[in-house]
Design a protein around this nucleic acid. Structure first.
Lengths: 200, 200
DNA sequence: TTATATAAAACGAACGTTCGTTCGGTATTT
DNA sequence: AAATACCGAACGAACGTTCGTTTTATATAA
């Protein structure tokens, strides 16, 4: 019979536990209000273990940021797959992002609300991250295909997704009384009426 | 002839200098990346002088926050004054906010982008601050007067102002190639087409 | 005008705390 | 036995804040 396990967490599992705990605390209290000692206590690991897996606190946040942005990226790409119309793609993106906001509020809080440039100085603004570039591209394609009016790309993109993003903020701030999904159709319709090419 | 002034700044003037410097540093580096010692150095005042005028660092930020929100409030109220149609009020609000974003980027950065709850724990989310409640009220009135479709208030408000707010973010992030005002008409038009009651 | 007294304002060295990080050692795996 | 993973006490730096002192402005008296 083998000896009792001294450590409950080792290797990759420990690494994941640290990431999970950091995400929880960062999204609850913010990056600067969360110390490595806090993460250590809540995760139930040692300081050394954290620094064995991550170069420093900033790298830990960086890892979280990239992972979550990547997940958003995959989700949005998957939502668009097989669709060609701008409206359908946009609807699918908003549906997916609303779903993720409800399902993974910590992740969305961390990516959407946090001011990453304050602690990730080399990070580009969120608007030029991959998920946001995809949204912009969807409406640019819509313009090219004649489904969307000939607007400035930035205007068309913010018009299509600006309302939805604010609704996600409201959801994360807990001020909505109905589930986020209940507003989805109306949000998409309002945005689309604003940018669609009128079928005269 | 009177003696040479030892202090260049005293009383209210010093207080204003501290506020001005704090706003500059907070908006450039963020609240947590700005120490009292930084403010002291840049403003050219002593630590004691800062603490003579402000209870602590948090109260300094609080004072800034309230002042700027108040200014936004006044500006928006003034923009709406004398107008009754929802579209005209909305256009005036967006015009004013675009102007303020260009004219006072530090102020807008501080109120719009910073995560105040991380250092002002008792502060309400920005969406329930007075300027944002006024925007929502404008579209609620528009619905009551039959100018806007019968949408959920939150949906109508985010549809009307969500795009404009994102454009302001883009301007503050420095990613726009044309002046913000150049996009104004298109932004207002897109939003309005989305929520107006169709004149059948 | 000049001198004196008092209060308010500004000063800045110093304090205690907390933070991110290190590192010598121990446990576990291979 | 060698390598990897983990441990946690300890460290130096930086932070927000304090407080005894000095300077300045103001009021009053000579």
């Amino acid at each position: 019979m083998s000896a009792v396990q001294k450590h409950t967490l080792r290797g990759e599992a420990l690494r994941q536990k640290v990431l999970e705990t950091a995400l929880q605390l960062f999204s609850e209290r913010g990056y600067f209000n969360t110390s490595i000692h806090d993460i250590r206590k809540v995760a139930g690991v040692s300081t050394g273990a954290i620094y064995h897996h991550f170069k420093n606190k900033e790298a830990l946040a960086q890892s979280l940021y990239e992972t979550i942005l990547g997940q958003m990226d995959d989700a949005i790409a998957a939502a668009c797959a097989g669709k060609s119309a701008c409206l359908e793609k946009s609807r699918a993106i908003i549906e997916k992002m609303f779903l993720m906001t409800v399902q993974y509020p910590q992740q969305m809080q961390f990516v959407l609300l946090a001011q990453h440039r304050e602690y990730l100085p080399d990070e580009a603004p969120i608007c030029s991250s991959s998920p946001f570039r995809m949204m912009k591209q969807v409406v640019i394609d819509g313009i090219a295909k004649g489904e969307v009016r000939e607007l400035e790309p930035w205007v068309a993109a913010t018009a299509m997704f600006g309302g939805a993003l604010r609704m996600m903020n409201l959801q994360l701030d807990g001020v909505l009384d109905k589930p986020l999904s209940a507003y989805q159709n109306a949000v998409v319709e309002c945005a689309w009426l604003g940018i669609r090419k009128e079928q005269a």
